[in-house]
Each structure stands twice: as C-alpha cells, then as structure tokens.
Amino acid sequence: MTCSRRQFLKDTATTTLAAALPVSTMVFLTPGELKAAVENKKTRWTFLVDTNKCVGCGMCVKACKLENEIPYDAPVTRTWVERYVITKDGEAHIDSPMGGRDGFIDDKIRDEVIDPKDITKAFFVPKLCNQCENAPCVQVCPVGATYQTEDGVVLIDRDWCIGCGYCIMACPYGVRFFHPVTKTADKCNFCYHRTSKGLEPACVQACAFDARKIGNLKDPDDPVAKTIATKRVAVLKDEYGTKPHVFYLGLDENVR
C-alpha cells in the first residue's frame, strides 16, 4: 500500500476526532448540581454521640464487627472507642486496643501505669465515619466507587473499587481501611442496610447507655435533630472543611 503522508495524517486526525466524539456526549454532573439534587430530599442521616454516657464497654464495636462481617480478630474496624486519660501535667494518654472491642479492662495504657492520683479527667470517645457532606473520600475516588447517597450516607461499591487507597489517604479521620477479605476500601455506613429498612444501626442497638443515636437532621421532630438544634454540640476536625455529620455532646479539647 502506498499512501501520501498528507493523506495519512489527515486520516489519523479524522479517526481521532471520531473516537473522541462519543466522550463529549456524556453528561457529567458537577458537585453543585449533585448537591442541588440532594438538598430537597427529606432525609439526612446524622449521628449523635454523647461522650458523657460512654463507659467504654466496647459492645458497639463487637456488634459492628459481627453485623458488618469485618473479620473479628483483624486489627481493623468500622467503629472504635478511644480512651483518654488526662494527667496533671496536661498530657493526654490515649489508647484504643483492638478498637476497644473488648472493653477497657486494663488500667495500663500501652504498658504504662498511670497513678490514679495524677489523673485529672478521663473519658471515652466512640468514633465512626462522619458521612461528611463535603467528603474528600468521594472527591478523590478515581472511579466513583465511593459515592454519597441522597440521604447523606457515603457508600462504597465493592464491585467497582480498584483498591487504590486514595480515599483512605484523603479521609482526615482515619476511618477507612482495606477489607481483608474483599480487598476493597471499607468503612462505616451507618448500617445502611438496616437504616433503609427502618432499623437502627447495630452499634446504636448494642449500646446499653444511649451514648449512640441516629436521626434525621431534616425532620424537625426527630429527637437527634432536636438535640443538635438546641444543645451545644461539636464535630471532629472541622478545620478540614469536610462538614462532618457525627455530632458530639461533651467533646473535650484533647480529643483528636
């Protein structure tokens, strides 16, 4: 075959253009458009943690692991409880062995014995995914496997996640991990399979002390929404601009 160079270049250009055309016909929603679509929905799942009530029994962690099939002895967990012991020198001693799954029965913190006389205050703080309104994990997922539902919960598509770990890096709260069995990103989703059926998340149900509650922020009669509206609540790390939706009562400045 002989073809002139001019013809060759021309053909190449045409083919490239033709190949590029279908791409331009796709519609991509901007985050703004998406948000507008979300905003007039009636549900916004929100969590309320009362740290004053948490006793660090670890029942929530246990329940979560079993409910969501996170291998029981694997060192990763969708929710965990942190123990804070503040001593007179102002130092915060923090730990969360096995995510607090087995409760805090040992008064040593990483083999360090703290003299009770030195303790000024001590408390427990349960942690879970904040289902951020402006979720960096959703932003950075290259394939859209992490996405936000209309009712505010951030979910992960296990069949589509490529396991790049970008979302794990992007979450300022360290709630994400790779599931040891599915080898995909994983995290708390407020037990979406339960809430969408009208049930409470496993951890909420397991907590005997009412330290964990779930509610709908958009419903003015919802008890959680009421508390958030009327009480002094705080969120974690708001400096990242993520707009977290897990609210805390009695959050101490030492909490990381």
């Binding site: 959703v138 997922c141 290259p142 394939v143 859209g144 996640c161 490529i162 970008y166």
Partner: peptide, 14 residues
Amino acid sequence: RAMEPLLTPHFTSA
C-alpha cells in the same frame, strides 16, 4: 480492575 479509571473516570479525583 485497572482499566476502570478509563472506563468510568470520576473527574474530581486527581
């Protein structure tokens, strides 16, 4: 699944 970023690119991701 390495080809997915080409098939379903989510352009807010770097």
